[in-house]
Amino acid sequence: MFGDGGESPSRHELLSMVKKHSNLIGKTVVDEQDASDVEMDQTFWHDVLDLYFIGGRDSKQQQDDDLLFFVRKMGLHGYGFNDNLEGNSPYFVRRWAAKLDELVGESSVIVDWRRSLYLNLIAHTSYSVTVAICSHQTLQNHQSNQGTPLSPIYKILKTVYASPSRVNFHLDSRKEVETKPAYPDICFAVDDFDSTFDAVVLTDKDHCYCVLLNAVGGAAFPTEKPPPQDTNSPPKHNTDGPQTNKTKLTLFSGFVSYQMVREAYDAGKSGFGSLLPFGHSSGKTDRIYMKGPGGRGEVEVAVSGIADHSLDEFGPQSPLHISQGGFKIGAMVRKAASVAQVAAKNAYAVASSARNPDHAMVPLKCCLMSISLPWEHIAHDLLFKGGAPVNL
């Protein structure tokens, strides 16, 4: 379909074709009359995937992996109508090879090439997640006036990867215990969540827990080669300010107040309504599920209260005083940043004077475990979303 013996389209040209024929993305009710003939043509999507991820592999960045994902066609009873070929998972995986048809083999008959193209576009794009503690007042000021700076009290930036599978973590052992398909959701998991976000502690009732997911490069951001210039004419300067190509895109942004996290942590049962439905697991750490703005996406967070060791500071073996030696400090105080420890201690000192213990301030450590979003939301934003990204 492409080239007819001539030069193959560039990645920018291919992406423009994909945008042109992506009218069905994001629609809950699909009317095939709304789709172009090309959009329903599996051969078109097969060829685009072949050119973009097989033929274009020599332009892959060093950090890209060489796995390709293939979504199975849906039968009358969902995925898995042809179990003799590839099992009952909604997708299967192959390692890159020079020829697409040889790579897929006889499984080609069960591949939905359109959805496979989108899934690979998502999987081969680079992402970062920002977790921050912000003042509620600062967030309100920013929402009312976008020009107001949004300066976090504390933040952590972490590289994450898009996957059509989900990892279930065992909170008491901090080890992944099961991996299962998540598709049509895409999961961005943080395997080392406990150590990565150890210092993210809400220590004030004005604190808010903020999560941002940004796409920052990779397959959805092909590098465009500048057009050749006439050597006899003076060089052209960019008069449009920053480059027009997207280099960063916010896919998810949301925050919750300390009070909302505290109520979930205390209750251990449904109490957030539609905004933050959550689950409760036994033990000292609660697994809380937070719905994104407008019900879009889901954030999984491990929340634990920081123990009050303020009374220990006068003891000869106080964990606040011991920095070295044979004492198992980690068993007495869970590792936390010194700033968070001091803030937690001060918060307890204030809370101890409160008459009603139910309103006492309890420092809460919030460790982001994963973010999940439907693939169609991600694909739509990668292709069409404009505007400046959210920066923290």
Rank of each mutant, 00 (worst) to 15 (best):
H321I: 03
E32A: 11
R11A: 15
P316Y: 06
V48D: 05
G147H: 07
E300W: 02
F272L: 11
Y289D: 09
L121S: 07
C367D: 12
A340F: 00
L139Q: 01
Y52I: 00
L202K: 02
A388R: 14
F314C: 12
V109W: 00
F252V: 01
A215S: 09
D286R: 13
D240S: 09
V350H: 11
F188M: 00
G386M: 06
K27N: 10
G217Y: 02
D83S: 14
M17P: 02
F69M: 05
E32K: 04
F92D: 07
E376Y: 07
T247F: 08
F2N: 06
Y127W: 04
V71N: 08
D101S: 14
N238W: 04
Y154W: 01
L320E: 10
P242I: 05
T203K: 03
S59V: 10
D198S: 14
N88H: 10
Q33P: 02
I306R: 04
Q42N: 10
G254C: 12
S126H: 08
T130E: 08
A199V: 02
G87C: 10
A98H: 08
L364Y: 03
T196M: 09
H377S: 11
M74N: 09
L320K: 09
P184A: 09
F69P: 04
L121I: 03
N145P: 01
I322F: 01
S8Q: 13
S36E: 09
R57D: 05
F169M: 12
V256R: 07
V333N: 05
L275R: 14
Q146F: 07
L320I: 03
D192R: 15
V261N: 03
V256T: 12
V71I: 13
W45F: 06
D198A: 09
G268Y: 00
G241I: 04
K73H: 06
Y79M: 05
Q146R: 13
L212M: 11
G273P: 05
F53D: 01
H380M: 05
N245T: 12
I54C: 05
N141I: 03
V38E: 12
P234D: 03
E313S: 13
S16P: 00
A182P: 07
H170M: 04
V350T: 10
M361T: 03
